[in-house]
């Protein structure tokens, strides 16, 4: 964990929530935060090198690109967890995959070009692993932030 002073924390919050869309965004952001552009860039470079800032760029809405996605979970016996996780991971369409101990214990997200491909992947996983699967596509979206309040 890297040490952060108040200025770093202000920067981390501002570049997530209020990144100015401007030809010279860092100059503008510096004005807002009352620090010089050079200092802001230096601090951002340090935070990036430490892994605290991964990138500054667009968060793309894949739905608008015509893709489909879902969250799915399988109920896997303890002894088969690694094997099943590996089987699921082989699909490039699987973007996230976590062990979350519960009735359904392997939770993964799939993004595919169309509905057919998505269903094909889920059916294959259910059949090949022989584990009960639930498909949990989004019915309604209330928030997708992935922004963090740094305190």
């Amino acid at each position: 964990m890297i040490p952060l002073d108040e200025t770093d924390k202000n920067i981390l919050n501002a570049i997530q929530f209020d990144f100015p869309l401007d030809v010279k965004p860092f100059e503008k952001l510096g004005e807002q935060l009352e620090i010089k552009e050079e200092e802001l860039l230096r601090r951002i470079q340090r935070l990036n090198a430490a892994g605290a800032i991964r990138r500054i760029g667009p968060i793309i809405n894949t739905k608008k690109l015509g893709g489909v996605s879902t969250l799915a979970a399988v109920s896997v016996p303890e002894a088969n967890i690694d094997k099943v996780a590996e089987y699921i991971n082989q699909y490039p369409e699987v973007s996230h995959n976590y062990l979350r101990p519960d009735k359904y214990n392997i939770w993964f997200t799939v993004s595919a070009d169309d509905e057919n491909r998505l269903n094909e992947i889920l059916e294959d996983i259910e059949k090949e692993t022989d584990c009960p699967l639930i498909n949990l596509p989004t019915v309604r979206l209330f928030k997708i932030g992935v922004m963090f309040n740094i305190r």
Binding site: I2, Q16, I53, R54, K64, L65, I150
Partner: peptide
């Protein structure tokens, strides 16, 4: 970029945070 944002193609333009490095 502004247009893509208002058309909903981009949800947000800004930083992605390595939250684990920050202790989250």
């Amino acid at each position: 970029i502004r247009k893509m944002q208002s058309e909903g193609i981009i949800r947000r333009f800004g930083a992605s945070i390595g939250h684990r490095v920050l202790g989250i």
